[in-house]
Design a binder for these strands. Structure first.
Lengths: 231, 231
DNA sequence: TCACTCCAATTGGTTGACCAATTTTTCGGA
DNA sequence: TCCGAAAAATTGGTCAACCAATTGGAGTGA
């Protein structure tokens, strides 16, 4: 497994700077030494130090102002637990935990979609579902499967829930990458997901919140069973 | 939904660079123009451009090598989902939709926490809850309220769900900013949230998934009622 | 003693020149 | 015509000098 980018790497300036702040008793809101002093304490040149400060500032761990100095943010985000990128999260997350997260989030979004879906959103959703039937290889199927699930998120008519789904989905792609073994060149017409998708779409179209929730939950459990075995 | 997140803050060099890559038909693995050309195309100095490239490299969206050039990563992480759009999302989202998103996500996370919480996580959660009682002003209360809800997300023992909560919470802070009017200097001992928090914590401690779900849902509906009126 | 002004020191930000790794071109020899 | 080494051009990385915002104290006058 890959170590975290700057957890174990003492030669990484960003991790050294994090360590300096974390172990230097700098409380939120307190001021750091000026850059020209930090260069001495950390033993790096100013340009290298500034690159590390840029990274921490972008994460929100510190804020700076000309003439004033550099200060530790009120929320210590990124100091005790450096906020890894989503790609990094995808690399660390086990497929089982990925699936548990999907089972937690997606049925809830699906229920909200059943409550808020406009007719236009329903059309979009059904379109994505039908396209999945016509694909000629697994890669295209994945794309259309993505589109179908995303169409459900958009049917909630809530940009924040769409953003939540996108975050979930981005990590999912990183986790799934290269882990899947297919037994055929393309999904057959009896692929279980096709039927499950239709149950979901029907429930949402009928504005049935509980039915939509259960349909999505069953679908994901079915996917889970195919991935990890029935257990 | 935001059609072009990058178009909205043209002043952020990172967003502009993201937009340039996203709309410039650069496929994963392809090479970007050299820095000295990008400065012309984006109309920024090289140092500003390099700071933006540093940010994208740290996110894993690109990789660079001296003499070779700058390349788009195999996984397009950070290009379709620019981090900067969250602040914009917070500005556009109505408080009502914010609350609907919370009602969709947080009870689901709370149920998952009841299933997976370790004893250490429970301790952390209870600690955050007790701290909220001792605050002397509303700002500290908000902080401790944040901590309590985040402790629940961490109790799921699932980094992805924590990331989902963080995204939700980040937008919430942007939405809530400056919208709240308080009638007293600090939360009184009979503040409804105190009791509701305890119900939640108890349900999670007893590993009661359904009870935890309902407790969180009731809490959020109570907050919603205080914000928007009973309707 | 207080208030105000001004100047020097401090501090983060920016710039242009230079450095080193890599690729491309050039050109002589077989 | 082909090969290979050397030179030139390209490209990302680094550095030292300089810039501008801010602070704080010395100086001045009422």
């Amino acid at each position: 497994m890959l170590a975290h980018p700057d957890a174990l790497n003492d030669d990484d300036p960003v991790s050294r700077l994090r360590g300096f702040i974390a172990h230097g008793d700098y409380r939120p809101g307190s001021r750091l030494p000026p850059e020209r002093e930090l260069t001495d304490e950390l033993g790096v040149t100013r340009s290298i130090l500034r690159k590390a400060l840029d990274a921490l500032e972008r994460e929100g761990a510190i804020w700076r102002h000309v003439g004033k100095g550099t200060f530790v943010s009120a929320t210590e985000a990124g100091l005790t637990q450096p906020r890894g990128s989503l790609a990094e999260l995808g690399r660390q997350l086990t497929p089982v935990k990925m699936m548990r997260a999907r089972l937690t989030i997606e049925p809830a979004i699906c229920r909200e979609a059943a409550i808020n879906a406009s007719n236009a959103a329903l059309t979009q959703m059904n379109l994505a579902m039908e396209r999945a039937h016509a694909v000629s290889n697994w890669q295209d199927y994945e794309t259309q499967d993505d589109n179908f699930h995303r169409a459900i998120a958009e049917a909630t008519d809530n940009p924040l829930l769409v953003a939540q789904f996108d975050q979930l989905n981005q990590v999912r792609r990183a986790v799934a990458l290269g882990n899947v073994v297919r037994r055929s060149a393309r999904p057959g017409p009896d692929h279980p997901s096709f039927g499950e998708h239709e149950v979901i779409a029907t429930a949402i179209s009928q504005r049935d919140p509980h039915g939509s929730y259960e349909a999505m939950r069953n679908h994901l459990r079915s996917v889970s069973a195919r991935l990890f075995g029935e257990g």
